[in-house]
Design a protein around this nucleic acid. Structure first.
Length: 567
RNA sequence: UGACCCAUGGUGUAAUGGCAGCACAAGAGAUUUUGGUUCUCUCGGUCUAGGUUCGAAUCCUGGUGGGUCAACCA
């Protein structure tokens, strides 16, 4: 253990949750144990906001030598499904976290929760209410006006026992009765006004089947589940702050172990929506192609897009944790994946918008294998051979007939370097007289400038990527952009919704030409297409039909210059 | 016309009564066989009014602004 190492560990500031935890450890609370949990409801797919919570909870468990449970809060059988349970487990694992043998379900505790309800009834702290949902809502009052007590509030303990067991036994149809806490109707906190504890739901649960026809409300299950699991720090988002007094009331009245709830601000990302409802609509109404569409902020969407778990974990780390509302700039997420892939992704050459180049003085039929670095950032990733021949393709954008001042690429009479190959000079070009489109460029190459030769060191302004026409592979390339054109799609002018700012260009399909080494590409392999961006092999890809998703473009200072000129 | 929470550069986050720092973004330059990467530099901030204090982003009070809460959803 060197001194330097100790010095390096020094002084990384703590977030407010870590401060609380370290204080609890210091004072010996819970025998200085740290035990967190990630408690999703299996009614949808996880998104980047959940990823923040997962990284937080599992990260804290790891950091303080504690444990982290995965618990499904599955108290509403009509909305939940095993499909979601499976996808959530897959996503948590993929993100790099392990709940070991601690996979739990709130439904595991239904019997225990029922017992807790009985305790409250016995203490005269809960009653069966015969009002329907509408009546309960009407008598709840408003935040500024107290509610009205239920006429069933003063039933005897015996009567409540009888009715509640009949509820469980299936005597009553859905919605006819509920079990309510008896707290009062005057609290300024709406959640404290005789809240519903149990409702009748003759529905098949994905785990308990038809065993139950009454189900606990989330509020009656969540805190007690944490208590049963001896969670020390129940970390949740801000909107549950007002629920905390109710959880505390349950814990106190039932007389069980009390976890400490800490609330933090949920993640918002610019140019995206995060609510389950909106995400569902995007999928259901066909604005995207499923939950794992690479434009979706879902974990499976990001994965398919080509984001790595490391980049997402790093993102979660960088954005921090606090209590104030926040909107993180997507460019930070993009920074994280570029940083990761820059170090790791092999480079290959691909041309997305091909323009034919003929090297007039290059021998007909000759093919040279050009050696190229897989990753200049990391020599250990090795080298590969790229075939070069007389007819090539470069990008349309890399040639201009009348280039402006700062254009460093190919133009009549100008020289450029072909990456890992020769320096070439544009001698002339062919233009379609009707469309004015340039169809073909004629160049000469300088044989002494082959990559690695002494003459190759000659200064030229630009370096272009290219593919050999006779060797190039066709590939379907899916170019993604942000899904929305507005920074905050949730905040639209009167009469408009987030759907009014969907980006019509969020997906552009092109057929590109890639160098032949791409033939070995396997699903989810990551590449940098030199000078273009990072790409990930889509699950639709096969040797016959290569499919690449653009994860993110490279930073492009030339595009910036051009953009400034436009405006 | 309630309760609770929050307020630091464009964005996010530090500073725990003692020099307002870091990252992203933006801008300038250097390097570069990727207009990438890397490096250097610049721009720019404590919501407001009082109070406490030798000293306040930090503590107190008022204001202002934002958020959350009125499912038999979670």
């Amino acid at each position: 253990m060197g001194e330097n190492q100790i010095r390096n560990e020094e002084k990384r500031s703590l977030n407010f949750i870590e401060e609380i935890i370290e204080e609890d450890i210091r004072t010996g609370k819970n025998e200085s144990r740290v035990h967190t949990r990630f408690p999703p409801e299996p009614n949808g797919y996880l998104h980047i906001g959940h990823a923040k919570s997962i990284c937080l909870n599992f990260g804290l468990g790891k950091k303080y030598n504690g444990k982290t449970n995965l618990r499904f809060d599955d108290t509403n059988p009509v909305k939940e499904d095993i499909e979601y349970v499976d996808s959530i487990m897959e996503d948590v694992k993929w993100l790099g976290f392990d709940w070991e043998d601690r996979l739990f379900y709130a439904s595991d505790y239904f019997e225990q929760l029922y017992e807790y309800a009985l305790i409250l009834i016995r203490k005269g702290k809960a009653f069966v209410c015969d009002m329907n949902a509408e009546e309960i809502a009407e008598t709840r009052g408003t935040p500024t006006r107290p509610g009205i007590e239920s006429p069933y509030r003063n039933r005897t303990i015996e009567e409540n026992f009888e009715l509640f067991s009949q509820m469980r036994a299936g005597f009553f149809p859905d919605g006819t009765r509920v079990l309510r806490a008896k707290i009062g109707m005057n609290s300024p906190n709406m959640h404290m006004r005789d809240p519903v504890l149990y409702r009748i739901l003759h529905a098949t649960h994905h785990r308990t089947g038809d065993k139950w026809c009454i189900y606990p409300m989330y509020d009656f299950a969540h805190g007690q589940s944490d208590s049963i699991e001896r969670i020390t720090h129940s970390i949740c988002t801000l909107e549950f702050e007002v629920h905390r007094p109710l959880y505390d009331w349950f814990i106190r009245e039932i007389g069980i172990y009390a976890p400490r709830q800490i609330e933090f601000a949920r993640l918002n990302l610019s140019y995206t929506v995060m609510s389950k409802r909106k995400l569902l609509e995007l999928v259901r109404d066909g604005y995207v192609n499923g939950w794992d569409d690479p434009r979706m902020p879902t974990v499976c969407g990001l994965r398919r897009r080509g984001y790595t778990p490391e980049s997402i974990r790093n993102f979660a780390d960088i954005i921090g944790v606090a209590k104030r509302d926040n909107v993180i700039d997507v460019s930070l997420l993009e920074f994280c994946i570029r940083e990761d892939l820059n170090k790791r992704a092999n480079r290959i050459m691909a041309v997305l918008n091909p323009l034919k180049v003929i090297i007039d003085n290059y021998p007909e039929g000759l093919v040279e294998e050009m050696e190229s670095m897989n990753n200049p950032e990391n020599e250990s990733q090795g080298k590969r051979k790229v075939p070069f021949s007389k007819v090539l393709f470069i990008e349309q954008e890399d040639f201009m007939e009348n280039p402006p001042g700062k254009f460093f690429r190919l133009a009549p009479g100008r020289e450029v370097r072909l990456r890992s190959a020769y320096i070439i000079r544009c001698e002339n070009f062919v233009k379609d007289p009707e469309t004015e489109k340039i169809t073909e460029i004629h160049c000469t190459y300088d044989p002494l400038t082959k990559s690695g030769m002494p003459e190759s060191g000659r200064k030229v302004k630009g370096t272009l990527h290219w593919v050999s026409a006779m060797h190039a592979l066709k590939a379907e390339v899916r170019l993604y952009e942000r899904l929305f054109t507005k920074e905050n799609p949730d905040d639209m002018p009167e009469g408009q919704t987030y759907k009014d700012c969907l980006n019509p260009n969020s997906l552009k399909l092109v057929t590109g030409l890639v160098e032949p080494s791409a033939l070995s590409a396997k699903v989810s392999d990551k590449y940098q297409f030199e000078r273009i961006g990072y790409f990930s092999v889509d699950k639709d890809s096969s040797a016959k039909n290569l499919v690449f998703n653009r994860v993110v473009s490279l930073k492009d200072s030339w595009a910036k210059i051009e953009k400034i000129k436009e405006t």
